[in-house]
Structures are given as structure tokens and as C-alpha cells.
């Protein structure tokens, strides 16, 4: 879609300033790009490369390691349905099947209105609450077909789900895909952790012995 907006570029410079080496800021910057567009666009990767002084190929190399950086547009709501062992035993695959029918898309695809993407995922670490799913990484436990329909219905009508996501704050809000936090952290210069220049630091003892 696009490069970082001027506002986000300012945020990017703030993030970069927290690190001794520019390149170290790459992962937080990829999050920033994903937050802006809902996914990490090629143009954004080129821009990030310019900001931290690495080639676009190197930015892609980092970005493509992480499953949760999306390099193609995904829906406003990314629904991950677990089909790993606990969920499978308790109906995860049936839930996925229902979701595919309800939204009219196969797992891995996005609805035509750009609202929902379904993914078939491996264990998301809520085996005691199987079958489970996440919407933009907010958990819903012991989900039945009707629960899924209700969540979709609410989100489609611009409401936050009636059934609140677990551990998602009192409002149970589900922000658009890519949103890392509702409040951006700003660290004043005098409170930045001591990022000493690694080139000037003395070598660790174990390295000197080698």
C-alpha cells in the first residue's frame, strides 16, 4: 500500500533512537508498518530499509521469518482457529469447517468485503479451553458454532462482540489487525535504558579467552 506516513515516520525515528544500532529497530518498525496498513507492504519494507540502512532484501529476510507479519493484505479481523490436538479432539476442525461455510471462504483467504481472514493454526496455548480461536490475537474460549456466528455478526455490524474476548481489557475491544497497543509508548530521552555503544563496550570474558 504505502510507505510510512509522516506521523509514523516520526514515531519510527523515535524507535530507532532507542537502539545503539539502527538495524536493531527493524522488528518494532515492521510492527509499526503493519499497524499502519494492516499488513507490511513492499513499499513499507523499502522505506524501513532506508530508515535503518539495510537493503529491502534484508528487510524482507527479517520480515518473512515471522508468520505474524503479513505481507499480503488480510481482513480487518484475522480469525485464527486452532486444529491442534486438544482443539481437534473437542471439535476444532468442525469449528473451522463451520467458519469456512459461514464466511464462504477457505482457510487462508479473506472475505470479499475485506473484513475477515480465517487461518487454520497450530496450538495457540489454550488447550484447557478447547476449542478456541483468536480474533486479532484476542482469545475466545470453548467456542461453539453459534458463538462464532455471534462474534462475526457483531463485528460485521461495527459492534464489539457481545461475548467478550478473554483477557482483552474491560471493554473487550478488538482493534483492527496490526494494532499492537491502544496506547503508544513514548520514552522520554532521559528515561531511555542505557544503550551503550556496543563497539565501545569491552568484550565479555568468555570471548576474550577464545
Amino acid at each position: 500500500m504505502s510507505r510510512l506516513s509522516p506521523q509514523n515516520e516520526a514515531v519510527a525515528h523515535e524507535i530507532i533512537s532507542r537502539y545503539p544500532w539502527k538495524k536493531s529497530a527493524l522488528i518494532p518498525l515492521l510492527h509499526l508498518a503493519q499497524e499502519q496498513d494492516g499488513y507490511v507492504s513492499d513499499e513499507a519494507m523499502v522505506h524501513l530499509g532506508e530508515l535503518v540502512d539495510v537493503s529491502p532484501a534484508e528487510v524482507l529476510g527479517t520480515c518473512s521469518f515471522y508468520e505474524m507479519f503479513k505481507r499480503e493484505p488480510v481482513g480487518r479481523y484475522l480469525v485464527n482457529i486452532c486444529t491442534n490436538i486438544s482443539c481437534q479432539l473437542l471439535g476444532g476442525e468442525e469449528l473451522l469447517h463451520h467458519a469456512e461455510h459461514a464466511l464462504g471462504i477457505k482457510a487462508g483467504n479473506t472475505t470479499g468485503d475485506g473484513l475477515f481472514t480465517i487461518e487454520d493454526v497450530e496450538c495457540i496455548a489454550a488447550c484447557t479451553e478447547a476449542p478456541c480461536l483468536t480474533v486479532n490475537y484476542r482469545y475466545f474460549y470453548k467456542v461453539e458454532d453459534g458463538d462464532f456466528d455471534a462474534i462475526v455478526e457483531d463485528l460485521r455490524n461495527g459492534r464489539q462482540p457481545t461475548r467478550k474476548a478473554a483477557e482483552s481489557g474491560p471493554e473487550g475491544q478488538i482493534p483492527p489487525h496490526g494494532t499492537l497497543a491502544l496506547q503508544r509508548q513514548h520514552i522520554p530521552a532521559d528515561r531511555v535504558a542505557g544503550n551503550a555503544d556496543p563497539d565501545r563496550a569491552s568484550a565479555p570474558v568468555w570471548l576474550e579467552q577464545a
Binding site: 513492499d42 519494507m45 539495510v54 537493503s55 529491502p56 532484501a57 524482507l60 521469518f65
Partner: peptide
């Protein structure tokens, strides 16, 4: 000094490649 190729998709499908259209 031309890092235009790099490992992409590190994991079980790691490949050497360029950035798209670069």
C-alpha cells in the same frame, strides 16, 4: 557491498531470493 539477495522465509522453506522487482 550489494546485499540485494538474502535468505527469505527462513524455516523449513528457506530460500535465497531478491526483494520483489529489485
Amino acid at each position: 557491498g550489494d546485499p540485494l539477495i538474502h535468505f527469505q522465509g527462513r524455516g523449513s522453506r528457506t530460500e535465497v531470493n531478491t526483494f520483489p522487482d529489485a
